[in-house]
Each structure stands twice: as C-alpha cells, then as structure tokens.
Nucleic acid binder design. Structure first.
Lengths: 342, 342
DNA sequence: GTACAACGTGCAATCGATTGCACAATACTA
DNA sequence: TAGTATTGTGCAATCGATTGCACGTTGTAC
C-alpha cells in the first residue's frame, strides 16, 4: 500500500520547503511561475492529494454540513437532501446525514456529534418531540449557521425555509368547497408541530370564508399511515352527520380514506372528495389519482442550502432569514367533481 | 461567541499538561484517579468537546464512511442508507452521501473527494455507465475497505453485498408459469448492469425449466418509468403473438404495463399477469396490488455496513467477502390467478 | 558604488489531540 | 539506608497544511 504523499514529499523531491509547496499549490503570487510549474508537475507525478482533514483543522472550516431529519427514507426528506446536495456539492461541501427518528434526545446527540465533527453549518427539520431549544443554542453560540427547513421551531438567530402550510391548506379546502363539498373533515397528525397547526388554521379559515361552520368532530388527529386513515374514515362515516370530503394533512391517510370509502361503495369524487398533502409520488400512480398539495421538497432543499451559503459568506453579520415557499395544489381525480376544473 | 475549549484550556485551568488531560480523558491507567476526576470535572465545567478533526488527523481514522449511489431520492437507495446508518451510527461513524447521477466521471470525482476527506471506508452501488475500474483501485491501494452493494463490478480486493437477482427472477417467472401463463414477456432496463443481466438469466432458466420456449421478441429493454412501461406494453400487445404475462425488472414499468392493459380492457390477473421487481411501496398501495420481488434494502444496507466493520477490524488481512442476499417474492393481486396461492 | 525596492523562499508556529520516552516522587525490598 | 520498583506527569514530536515574518538575491535608480 502506497503511503499517502504529502506536501513534504513534494518539497523533498524538489529540495524546497513545504511552505513553498503549499503556496505554489494555492497559486500564491509570491511564488515564481517556474516553481509553481515544477511543484504542480511533481504533485501530479507523486499523485498528491490534499488531506482535507489537515486543511480543515488548520482553517477551522471542514467543508461539511450536517443535515438532520427524522427519517431519511421518506420521499419528502430524501428529495430535500437531493436539493441540498445540488447546491452544496458544486461549492465543495459534503453533506453528513443524521436521523433523529423523531426523538429529541437523539436529535441533541446527533447535533453534538456534528458540532464535534466541526461542521460548517447545520440544516435541520426538527423532530416531532422537540420542545427544548438548548441544543440549538449550542450551535448558534459557536457561530455556526443553523437553518430550519420544513419543520421549524423558534430560535433567535436561526434562519428557516418553510412551506406556507396555511396557504396550502387554505387552497386545498377552498378547492373542496368550490367542488360543492359542504362537510369537509380534516386529518391532522401532530398539532404540536407548527406545520400541522398551520394546516388546520388554513383549513379553518377557508371554511369560514366559504361560509361553512367548523365542526370539531370532523377534525381527527391520527398517525400518518394508511391504516390510521382507514380507521379514522370508518369512524367518520359512522357519525350521525358524516362528512362529504376530507382534506388530509398526510397523503397516506388520504389513501387510507379512499380505500375505506371504496370498500363501502362511496363514489369518489362524485359523492366524496379527498385531498392529501405532500404530493407523494404514489398519489399519481393510482388509478384514482389523488389530489394533493405539493411541498416542492427539491426547491426547499436548494433554498435552505442557498441560505446557508449566504450566511457562511456574511461572516460575523448574522442575519436571520425566513423564507416561505408557496405550495401548489395538484388537482387530480379524487377531488375533480366538476369538469370545469380540468 | 465562546471560543471552543480544548484540552489545553483544561490543562491550564488545572495547572497540568495537555498530555495528562488527554490521557485522563482516555482513561489511561497511568493517570491517578484523583487527576482523572479533576480533569473530568473541569472538562464538564468548561463544556469541553473533543475536536474530531484533530483526532482524525492524528489517528488517521476520520470515523466517516462514504456511501455512493446513483440517486438518493429513490426508495431503494434511501432505504439502503437507512440500513447502513442503523449499523454504523452506534459505532460512532458518520455517513457521507454522494450521488453519481449514473455518471462515471462524477463517480470518480466523488470517490476522489471522499478519499481526500480521509473516509475510513466506501460503500458503493456503481453507476450504470461505469466501465473503468481505475477509481476503485485507487481506494484499495490506500488500503481502504471498498464494499459494493446491489450493483457491483468485479474488482479484486473489494467485497460485495448483492441480491440473488437470478433467483428472484427465476421465482417470479416460475410463479407466473405456475399461474398458467404461457407467454411471459420481460422488461429489462440495462443489460450492461449485472443485476439486470442476472434477472434475464433467471427468467430464461425458469422458462426453460417450465418447458416454455424463449421468445426474443418478448424481451424489451426500456427505461425504468411508467411511460416506458406503457409504451412497451402497447407494442407487445400489438404483436401477432402477444404475451399473456409480464415479468418486469422494474416496478414502475410493471405499473405502466398494468395501466395500459386496463386501458385496453385486458383483465388482470384473469387474462394477464404482471410481476415487478423491487417491491416499491407503491406496489401495495394500488387497488390492484402489484406482485414484486423484494430486495430487502434495509438488510442490504445493514449487511454492507457489517462487512465494512469486519474489514476495518481485521486491519491488514484483507479478506474479500461476497454476501448474496435471498430475495423474496411478494405475491399480490396482479398475478394471483389461482386461489391456491392465497 | 551605494541605497532601496521588489521578488522568491525558508523558518517556525499553529490548528487540537495523541504518545514514546524521560524523569521525579514515592513505595518497597534487603 | 541505600537501591530498586512502581506510579504519575511532563516534554516534545507528530498528523498535514497554512501563514506572518524574516532574510537573501537580484534589479533599478541616482
């Protein structure tokens, strides 16, 4: 195995100093062109590769950023990462992924770990459990950019890139009203998370603006999976006053709802409309395609990355930046009662 | 902003040497218990956190591993990552994700980058384009473990964790034959990749064993998406001798096939059976659930990680290890012609 | 011919943690 | 009481690259 070649090896080969080699490699104007050429040639010959660890230790910049999220194998999050990489890789940054599994303690742990690894910034979507903000302050205290994406929490000094969940929910609900739905139920997941709370608020406002009375019994908090959607729908349909539409804050729940409705022979969208949230790919795959609010995860990732890059370049002047992306409602069969919407 | 505290700060506070502090923190037996206690206390007070970069530089072990894959936002790959993290995080490793976008040059670039970052190992699923193995040899020359997962390429000294694609394809095809299908077509994606070639071979062997003549016209190479699946199916059905089943090496293509077949009123599974490959979540979401071969991506990730851990512990003795995982066919509605399969 | 500028390199410290070797202090043996 | 173990720390080099300052050379001006 060939030991790695360092600038010292190059220096020795040319009978000069490592300092000169370093300067030559960095194209320092104080080094003569001749020397530069020789260094470059020798570097190539010896197959020299810079040791990023050494550079990082010296400069204090690791050129790594941490990306923290609940679970990586969720469509939304893996797409966000994709977006982040698109922006950061070309700038020479590597991305270290850490999962929290929706656990506050684990979140604090991975953040500590990232700080120890000297990351240059942290992009995070907070876990559902998180209440304490101490670990976030740790980051800011070290003057490391902290950017929340999608799920944020209020921390002074941190930036955020989020979706206008309120708006998305409002549009989805309004769309259902426009389709003639009168009794619109809502599935939510975790009201302690801002995103879900905002969706409820958007939903409520749309009802209000549409002249529909808000019905407490039509709002159900469930897990974000198909089964939960089925069960919840079953219960809703057994109410004395069942809904004629569901706006679900989660796509899997919307799917579960549809599956149950079909099983009891409710016609969709003629008798019942459903709209989901997230625009997960599967919503387009079904025969009965599902309307959903798109969160543009790629754009969110790219935007979060850009905000990071801005902050890193502004040095000491720490300007919090709050970017809010606009969602777009994808209207599909599950809620297309009227031809006019085609 | 509080400057980071180092072992020197602790040393100064206690009027001892950084060397002693280092030993105390590492629980070196040559340090007295008293000193250890004091160091630990002071470390806590000063909120000392080890600098992983410095440790890495000194030890030559960065505790980072690179994971290279075509695209992160593919169900299969994001699940593999999940599996890798499950094994590696508890051991103190961080994972650096790099995408190749199926591009050989990019693949070589990210590998170079990972090597410069001094990763302790590289787990990779090669890009479709890759022919040259030079960049892989670079890794091995530095005595860094190289583990292929899913898509491998022959490189002496590298380990691999793959799926028995041959077996998976064989079972899928045999299952179709057992269902009474006589003319089974096959969708493949890229025959230059071992995994797809193996699937074809398994398909062929199953046909042979089932006494069915292989029909060249029933094997179609297409992209792995719904549209391609639709089109290819359309063409197949227009043949003088159309198939009565499709074993697709890709789930999206299988879905495309089903969509087209429905559109021309072919009954599934009564008149036509379809089996996909990958067991993508959406295959279970449809009303007409799709049979598919499961690749157990989580297990694959975990296994690849374990192989890495073994190699890293065996030091110089470099033993190549080839693990082959067994796929499992998930039989669902799209191919369940006979009740006996229930 | 002297003075000063410009140019090109080398010296040595630094980033933070680790470690072989040396050495002082104490404990134990004869 | 001298001599040898044992124990606990310090010294200084090291990992690989960077950088402020110093210094020797050559060139130019008067």
């Amino acid at each position: 195995m060939s030991k790695k070649t360092t600038i010292y090896d190059i220096a020795k080969a040319l009978n000069i100093t490592a300092a000169t080699v370093s300067r030559a490699l960095n194209n320092n104007p104080r080094i003569s062109d001749d020397t530069k050429r020789m260094v470059l040639e020798t570097a190539a010959e010896l197959n020299y590769k810079p040791n990023r660890l050494a550079m990082a230790l010296k400069s204090g910049k690791s050129k790594n950023v941490g990306v923290v999220l609940p679970y990586i194998n969720r469509t939304f999050f893996s797409n966000v990462i994709h977006g982040i990489e698109e922006e950061l890789n070309p700038m020479g940054y590597n991305v270290i992924i850490c999962q929290t599994h929706e656990d506050e303690k684990k979140e604090a742990d991975v953040i500590q770990n990232l700080l120890n690894a000297q990351v240059d910034g942290i992009l995070i979507s907070v876990s559902r459990e998180t209440k304490n903000t101490e670990h976030f302050n740790q980051i800011l205290k070290k003057n490391i950019p902290l950017i929340f994406y999608d799920r944020k929490i209020n921390v002074k000094g941190a930036s955020s890139v989020t979706l206008d969940d309120y708006q998305g929910a409002y549009e989805a609900t309004k769309h259902l009203i426009d389709q003639g739905c009168k009794k619109i139920a809502h599935f939510t997941v975790d009201r302690s998370l801002e995103i879900y709370e905002n969706r409820i608020q958007g939903y409520k406002q749309a009802l209000k603006d549409g002249g529909i009375k808000f019905n407490m019994n039509h709002v159900v908090t469930i897990e974000s999976d198909i089964e939960a959607g089925k069960e919840a729908t079953k219960k809703l349909m057994e109410l004395a006053n069942p809904p004629d539409a569901i706006f679900s804050a989660s796509d899997p729940c919307a799917l579960g709802a549809i599956q149950h409705l079909k099983s009891i022979n409710v016609r969709i969208p003629e008798d019942f409309c459903v709209v989901g949230f997230s625009n997960d790919p599967f919503t387009q795959f079904m025969e009965l395609t599902i309307s959903s609010v798109d969160q543009s995860p790629l754009l969110m990732g790219r935007t979060a990355a850009k905000v990071f890059l801005e902050q890193i370049n502004e040095d000491d002047i720490k300007i919090e930046k709050q970017v809010v992306l606009t969602p777009s409602l994808k209207i599909r069969k599950s809620s297309m009662k009227l031809d006019s919407d085609l």
